[in-house]
Design a protein around this nucleic acid. Structure first.
Lengths: 221, 221
DNA sequence: CAGTGTCTTGGTCAGATGACCAAGGCAGCA
DNA sequence: TGCTGCCTTGGTCATCTGACCAAGACACTG
């Protein structure tokens, strides 16, 4: 019954609608009029809150990344075992991504549509999320739960890629739940794909060189 | 000295330019006039060859996927060892993706811009590429080079995700070559991230259930 | 050297788009 | 009950976009 609750304007619904359309057709191909009509408001009302279409996208991404951080933090807090924390975090990330929350999808795949200051702001938020994951991986590595020599940043990028890509092919009726996919992917990452008797076959020297930490592990923009 | 070589119009260059702009700004946000100007031709000349902007995108994706298939096939043909074929294919895929050939990037990340028949055509081509990979993985599994119980389709989706995602963060001066990244990722996938003494820790029953083949492994739409 | 068919030129056109606003409505407060 | 300020309404407007074309230039042929 607060003041905000009495407002007739459904701001969250507007963002949801915008996210759905942006995901379906892309940011540039979606018009403000379409969003307004689908959300049941007039274009002018959108403009009153968001001076430009870009601001709508930023607000939507902002909300999505806050949700992601909250979801993963909550999930990881359920245990203190470093390995298990990573597994639960992975689950939470994938659950959110596949939950029908189009905002996360848009965040991942439409950030090219942003330029200048808006892009910087989103990148800064994303960095926070990534730093959180790096922390979890660092703890796992420190507790001896990761093979020595693995590059934590590359591990994170590796895992993010595998998991984020799921959004491009997953369909709810596909016979696997998001949790199952997360756990299968977790097992692939944790145990590898080679059977036990093959693990020592590849020349160890070769691999150890390739896995040495890079001199400058600076990531791309 | 063939007829084609004498033509002044640089069709490949036009597609290159279009791919670069589509990658930078997205398909919908790029205008035909921009492409024409950047390629050094007039908008009318583009329209003569491609009746609609969408046709340009299709042609560009078509070329990209043919290149990808050719690159991976050539790389994999260098050996008959199933495991090594996969590793070399992975390298070739990543090399092409990071080589500056924006067409492959556009193919991966801009196919939402297509609708109807055009989308179906690209999906059909993409399926061919994926089937090729499935074949390589099947051979590796048959030769006992993969842990029993792994779902080959999920393995492919897992690997594609990790590798394709690299295009979103890679920068040429980042201290790692595409080949190094491919090999590191390969080692993560093959050997897993857990150290040897931890591999048997997680409850085996739990994991084996999760890795059971899905009853209906139908992929997304 | 004239003929022929392909390709380019430079511009037009209808339609759509993002941005914007003046005026009015309406809920909550005094 | 009257007031006040936030929010919505239903447009307008300049600009840009993809599509399109008639006329002409060009390279090659016979």
């Amino acid at each position: 019954m607060t003041k905000a609750a009495l407002r007739t304007f459904d701001e969250a619904g507007l963002l949801d609608t915008a996210a759905r359309l942006f995901r379906q057709k892309g940011f540039a191909a979606t018009t403000l009029r379409e969003i307004a009509q689908a959300a049941g408001v007039l274009p002018g009302s959108i403009h009153y809150r968001y001076p430009a279409k870009e601001a709508l996208l930023v607000a939507l991404m902002d909300r999505a990344i806050e949700r992601a951080i909250a979801a993963v933090q909550t999930a990881a807090a359920q245990t203190s075992d470093p390995t298990e924390r990573v597994r639960l975090g992975l689950r939470a990330h994938l659950q959110l991504l596949l939950s029908g929350d189009d905002g996360v999808y848009v965040l991942l795949y439409d950030w090219r549509s942003l330029a200048g200051r808006a892009r910087e702001e989103i990148v800064r938020l994303r960095d926070r999320y990534e730093a959180f994951w790096d922390g979890m991986l660092y703890e796992a590595a420190g507790a001896g739960r990761l093979r020595p020599g693995v590059d934590l940043k590359l591990v994170r990028l590796f895992g993010f890629g595998a998991v984020n890509w799921v959004a491009t092919w997953y369909s709810p009726g596909g016979g696997r739940t998001p949790e199952q996919i997360a756990d299968v992917f977790w097992s692939y990452m944790a145990l590898g794909l080679l059977p036990d008797e093959q693990r020592r076959d590849p020349a160890p020297a070769k691999l150890s060189v390739l896995e040495a930490p890079s001199p400058s592990s600076k990531e791309g923009k």
